[in-house]
Nucleic acid binder design. Structure first.
Lengths: 168, 168
DNA sequence: TTAAACTTTCAATATATTTTGAAAGTTTAA
DNA sequence: TTAAACTTTCAAAATATATTGAAAGTTTAA
């Protein structure tokens, strides 16, 4: 396989993976494109490479910046804005974990905490089942939360070293 | 908060979480409903509880069964099919991890393995960047894969015990 | 100033996903 | 058999999500 074809495949695969994980396809593709570009790209470059409109490119880039995955780069003596992606995979994973925790895990834990407190007739099977499921899910969510918390603070080698050591 | 309201909230929250994680909202809601039901429910019960059509209920239940999250229950002397959800949170997490690994992680690892092998001019920055990103992402994906593999084999207490011990 | 170079916005449009519900299919009891 | 009880299918409709592109907004150099 030659490089241009390989690039295409990578962008396609990353886009597909994104859309299976709640990230819009174009956003994942722009990210992929920037990940394999040695230099920062302009909005025009991205529009052309991926055949998308200016509006779409602009929105997507802002979204990627809000996720902390892409940054603007200003070049001296140039009006145009250039964009580049953080290439450090561990940073990317951490950044994504951080954002999703904030956006999704935190809110559900808040709701589960409330629901855990709901009182009811301890003899009522409906109440028992509700309470057990909610409590169990809450525990799981908190374990995940703790693990993420540690991951966010950790260094990559240490993290995988520790995890994989357990699983030797 | 009273039980009926709490149930509603739980179904709503689970549905929202699902849709943020690539599971369709209705599927997550049916799952939530079954999780908090002490008894197995019929298609009719589910249609009524969630105000959805027969076709939708049927498709969703089959999908949940294909994920291994819900099972059919046949009651002696009855024609109707009853459905109930596995209430063990650890089983649910494992089941979901197992399916997503098979459906999403495995295919991308296969592609990354191929892309890692692409040859090119080692002096070319475009090739260097491509190769580094692909290789790094491949490593990360394989670490995740190994961790999931172990999680799938593990017992809940052992798993969280080991993880949380490291992160004490 | 001002006009060229660039970025942002957003209503309209296109695309993708989900849901409906009636018809077709299947199973069972008598 | 057969007809009632139940499940499945799937084309059409509804809904949700993503994209376009032209107009409006902003910044800069002269």
């Amino acid at each position: 396989m030659e490089l241009p074809e390989a690039k295409q495949k990578f962008i396609e695969a990353w886009g597909k993976l994104g859309s299976e994980w709640g990230v819009n396809r174009t956003m994942a593709q722009v990210h992929a494109l920037l990940l394999i570009s040695p230099d920062a790209l302009t909005t025009e470059d991205i529009m052309e490479s991926l055949s998308i409109s200016r509006g779409n490119a602009n929105m997507t880039l802002r979204e990627l910046m809000s996720w902390g995955l892409v940054e603007k780069q200003l070049k001296a003596g140039e009006r145009k804005e250039y964009f580049f992606a953080d290439k450090d995979t561990w940073n990317i994973a951490r950044q994504v974990a951080k954002e999703r925790r904030k956006r999704e895990l935190d809110p559900i834990i808040k709701i589960l905490d409330e629901l855990t407190k709901v009182e009811g007739d301890k003899k009522d099977p409906a109440y028992q089942t509700f309470n057990k499921s909610v409590t169990d899910i809450n525990k799981l969510a908190k374990n995940v939360d703790k693990t993420l918390e540690t991951m966010l603070k950790a260094d990559e080698n240490w993290f995988w070293g520790s995890i994989l050591k357990i699983f030797k």
